[in-house]
Design a protein around this nucleic acid. Sequence first.
DNA 1: CTCACTGATGTTTGCGTAAACATCGAGCAC
DNA 2: GTGCTCGATGTTTACGCAAACATCAGTGAG
Lengths: 413, 413
Amino acid sequence: MSCYVYVNIRWRHVYTAPRTAVKGPSGPGTAGNDRKAADVEVDTVEEAPAELPGPAAETAGTARETTGRAPAAPRRARASASMADVARLAGVSSQTVSRVSNGYAGVTEETRRQVLAAMKELGYRPNSAARALKRGEFRTIGVITFSLSTTGNVRTLEAIATSAAAEGYAVTLLPVAVPTQDEVRGAFSRLEELAVDAVIVIMEVHLLDAATIQLPPHVQVVVVDSDAGDHYTVVDTDQHGGTRAAVRHLLDLGHRTVWHLGGPEDSFAAQRRTDAWRAALVEAGRVPPPLIRGDWSADSGYRAGLELAARDDCTAVFAANDQMALGLLRALHERGRRVPDDVSVIGFDDIPEASSFLPPLTTVHQDFAEVGRLCVQAVLRKMRQVGPERGTTLVPTRLVRRDSTAPPPRPAR
Amino acid sequence: MSCYVYVNIRWRHVYTAPRTAVKGPSGPGTAGNDRKAADVEVDTVEEAPAELPGPAAETAGTARETTGRAPAAPRRARASASMADVARLAGVSSQTVSRVSNGYAGVTEETRRQVLAAMKELGYRPNSAARALKRGEFRTIGVITFSLSTTGNVRTLEAIATSAAAEGYAVTLLPVAVPTQDEVRGAFSRLEELAVDAVIVIMEVHLLDAATIQLPPHVQVVVVDSDAGDHYTVVDTDQHGGTRAAVRHLLDLGHRTVWHLGGPEDSFAAQRRTDAWRAALVEAGRVPPPLIRGDWSADSGYRAGLELAARDDCTAVFAANDQMALGLLRALHERGRRVPDDVSVIGFDDIPEASSFLPPLTTVHQDFAEVGRLCVQAVLRKMRQVGPERGTTLVPTRLVRRDSTAPPPRPAR
DNA sequence: CTCACTGATGTTTGCGTAAACATCGAGCAC
DNA sequence: GTGCTCGATGTTTACGCAAACATCAGTGAG
């Protein structure tokens, strides 16, 4: 085995008391310590490098070091104080500063006060990059989301940010402009070199499948709004239960059947609401009318509404979200179909404006705050390896009755 | 001057060809090189540490090091590969890996390919903490926002995230739950130890004043939605121009005056819309009616609407945002006041749903995407010190005419 | 009185990267 | 051929922090 001893001599400015002349290695046979160090102290007369290379240029960088012209004292141009600076000012070692900074025990109250005073004076702030490098974690959660255009995503994001903050984590946002495989892949690859410990994905998961493989190891993923519980940890609202409650509510009012204004085809949430709507009708022995699709927007709801207004047999509509319900209400109103007298309308989401629609909208309330909270909890649990690898957590929904639903115009046929 | 030479001997595993026996310092008088290094190469016979401490435990950590039982080869339990690992596999120095990783010139195509192959095989991802530590920047922008409940904030945030991503920056979100001094201060102090290079604040700035002092140095701030251009760099929409356009529009239709449903008192944006409303009326020689205040919510608009509906002399209302306009529409409708036949209503923001209100709402369009984009540009310019320290940038607004405004019921008196 | 122990504090080291500097050969002008 | 430049690559170091380890003065048991 060929090794060599590597002797490294360097200058070092002395600002503490002189040390012992020579320190030998702690013991040649010590296991677990591969390195031996020999410190040789030497007194030198400095060569006095002129000291006049233009005083202005010399002082330009930062406050002049009080230690003077020591050749090894690096005058760095940094602006913020480091632990070493604090330590110097407080007259302690940087390790003690670290201890104070991290609230470790074993520091005298007296020392602590001095260190804190020094920190304050220098405006010291721990460098999070160094901290992250040392600790191997960033205390940051990445959130990938396809646009912030839907209430649900925004509310969830907000709750995630709040919950994460409560746990001492920051949230980094990765917007995906267009929901294509490439875009998602792009977000993930940006993520790879991003400072995050875990990821929460608020998106339809079928865009995920091919993209996920590139995720860095040890970064945990939690997915919202998906049925991929087999492969990921998923948190979602109880779409099925909420839909069922909405349909049952309309049927209980006496409607013969319930039409459905569904969300876009590529949305899992929309898919599940549609499936649940159909199942609830079948379960009640009713015939599901043809599905009408929108794209979540109020405009698409309006267009669908124009269609539905033309049909006499349509007395109840379940819209997959409140925005579409809004458009629906406008179309029905324009066509002279009164809500709820002629047609009952029910939405999904319970956006804040829903209570101010004309008429105030009966809808299914989703607790996005809870979803966000659970996401953070799940992802932290996964990081700490105390949670299950996969599986779906459902957040209950709640039917909010307002004024857009009523019994059908004629007694149920 | 008292210095000492510091001799540091350590073991080092050799994986390259042996080097020259002794390298002297490059020259004692060299200016600008404070350090002298003496490398002494020594051949040693290894003590052969048994090699059988349980093979299973030995291999458990990670893939077995190909270099074998060298005592100085640290078998770390880390999971992700570092540059050194890539370098080892590719048979180059880590610096070359760095060059490839950062796309620097001066690397042979051949070498580059090898390095890239090694990166791929090991799944290498640059460690952003180390990178940030070395480079002194995080390539991250922090965004402090008071809740994501308003469309404007959300849209702006989204645009910020997108623009930042385009510039290679990530966005870290700092929600402030309650708009109190303490909360804001808290957000800032969390921010202090957060990995951000700059901050964009989307908030009323009078909550900022007392809090800002604690910001870490060299972190630039850009503020949205404020009139504090004297102290900060501010990006905002042209509240004044938009309001003026709205008021003029109503006056031009023949309304004698325009009522105003203002936003909350503590909002700068609300304040400016109110001021501009009043100014526009005065400029036109009209008497501003009493101000009615809401809190941005549709409910508050509804309550205000009930009041206004009772007044015969109210034929035109300028609501400070679309949500309040929505509530207003409902109140007017409930009280039998037709919009726009009896009362004209105009909003502010142009939220996506505004076109689906009953009737579709005439409103002032704000280009939040542009605001976000400009925020990022401004903050990056400030970081690069090529932008002005302070001042306000205004984004134009645009009146969107829909169906909620019309001439007053009687010819103007 | 000695020694093991304890608690406060200091010293060394390495995390992964990239800047600065060093080296080394090839090509080129003289 | 000599010296020089230039391009490719290697070596050393520092970034700021905190874990691991070292030191050192008291304290109390023996």
